[in-house]
């Protein structure tokens, strides 16, 4: 018998998670003007925008936001091998010396993050790169960890974690469901 999809974060809880991540970033950056956000396309990019809006609203910190599409750096055969010319990105600032916060929706094997670190280190010499994720579902295959986590959840292998965002999916939620 397959379990029913269940909601692990509803819209309100998701919003709280984003607020808390923004708050922690503000606290740990200690007013540094060198913080920048880079969202992993696609949902990470929208989360980065939300975190930036939250930082502007509650902490009066204006943080530049860029996006990174690492599909060409992936190692699962879905993209071409890492050719920086193929890297789709919109990072309208120089990374050198910046404290980059990489934003993604789900942290799972760590392979996306590794690819993103590769891409970012190709693009410039950031002072540091931190990782913010809405959901950490564990089961890491690489020695990657997140600095800011919205929610830790345990999802059995074979199940998928879906992050739904109103910008793309019409509503906000995190759902555990069966793989398609």
């Amino acid at each position: 018998m397959t379990p029913k999809p269940r909601v692990v974060l509803d819209a309100a809880a998701l919003a709280r998670s984003v607020r808390r991540i923004a708050h922690e970033i503000a606290e740990r950056s200690d007013g540094a003007s060198t913080v920048v956000l880079v969202g992993v396309v696609r949902r990470g990019a929208f989360l980065a925008e939300r975190i930036a809006a939250e930082l502007a609203r509650t902490s009066q910190i204006q943080v530049p936001v860029g996006t990174l599409d690492i599909s060409s750096y992936r190692d699962d055969g879905k993209g071409a091998p890492g050719d920086p010319r193929l890297l789709a990105r919109d990072i309208p600032f120089v990374l050198d010396g910046k404290r980059v916060v990489l934003v993604d929706d789900v942290l799972y094997t760590g392979r996306t993050v590794r690819a993103a670190l590769d891409a970012l280190s190709d693009l410039g010499r950031a002072e540091s790169i931190q990782l913010a994720v809405l959901v950490d579902r564990g089961e890491r295959e690489l020695p990657i960890r997140a600095d800011y986590v919205g929610k830790n959840i345990e999802a059995p292998a074979g199940q998928r974690v879906y992050v739904r965002l109103s910008e793309v999916d019409g509503a906000d939620a995190v759902i555990i469901g069966n793989g398609k």
């Binding site: 190692d75 670190l117 790169i129 931190q130 690489l142 020695p143 997140a146 600095d147």
Partner: peptide, 23 residues
């Protein structure tokens, strides 16, 4: 493409600049 990568270090001295954690 390795199946998994674990990290072993003799000494962890802190001051991480990347989201990497030794196993």
């Amino acid at each position: 493409r390795p199946a998994t990568v674990k990290l072993a270090v003799l000494i962890d001295r802190g001051h991480r600049a990347l989201p990497i954690r030794p196993n």
